[in-house]
Design a protein around this nucleic acid. Structure first.
Lengths: 109, 109
DNA sequence: TTCGTAGTTCGTAAATCAACGAACAATTCA
DNA sequence: TGAATTGTTCGTTGATTTACGAACTACGAA
């Protein structure tokens, strides 16, 4: 047995969420959804410069991470931010940011 | 010319930083450096269950993203959080989180 | 039933990521 | 000078990501 610990749930969750936000397309999607309640792939593809199929894949990743959700409203699918998950995102990153950080004075930049 | 705009600097910066935090090993590193629990690769490798070479690569990624910095203090290298960059991280994510989000009531979870 | 719209999935190709051990610097200490 | 320590780089192997157009599904409207 090793003394090395595995990762905490918090570390895994932060990593998962950060990864989901780790691409400009996905950041753009989230920003858009945050400011306009919900919208459709078609709307996004007018603004975000990638193929619709690519956009759809990015939407899937955000969905897999739980950050967004889609509701079928034929013939379209309405995407929006998942309220609960977004609260979790804020809370997890908030914890990290509120860490009373110790910066190293002797380290040059 | 397309009417589609490219990505804003903010979107690219957030994505870059989020990507850097998008792995449990790197989250663990940042958490330790924030509190200066460990500052040397050797210390970290006693806690984080990956090979030293792998750890070194993760440190490089965080360094490339500008989040951490290393100072040579022979025979070791002392790592720490880059104060200015960390402030930027907080500010960028802060902006995102402070967005007055409009959640869609009609979307089921 | 046929057409058009909205979005997903498929198939493919290139690039990047993640992981490991081995080999390699650089430096201190004996 | 030689040995030990610290950390990086190399070389390799898979897995994952990103991107695109083409093909497909699902649905409402004509």
């Amino acid at each position: 047995m090793s003394k090395k610990k595995s990762f905490t749930d918090e570390q895994k969750q932060i990593a998962r969420l950060a990864k989901a936000l780790g691409h400009p397309v996905r950041v753009a999607i989230v920003q858009m959804l945050l400011t306009q309640e919900c919208c459709y792939l078609g709307d996004m593809s007018e603004v975000i410069p990638v193929a619709k199929s690519t956009l759809s894949q990015h939407l899937s990743e955000l969905k897999d991470a739980g950050i967004i959700q889609g509701t079928i409203t034929p013939p379209m699918i309405k995407y929006c931010i998942n309220k609960e998950k977004w609260a979790l995102v804020k809370s997890l990153f908030g914890n990290l940011f509120e860490t009373n950080a110790v910066f190293c004075e002797s380290c040059e930049v």
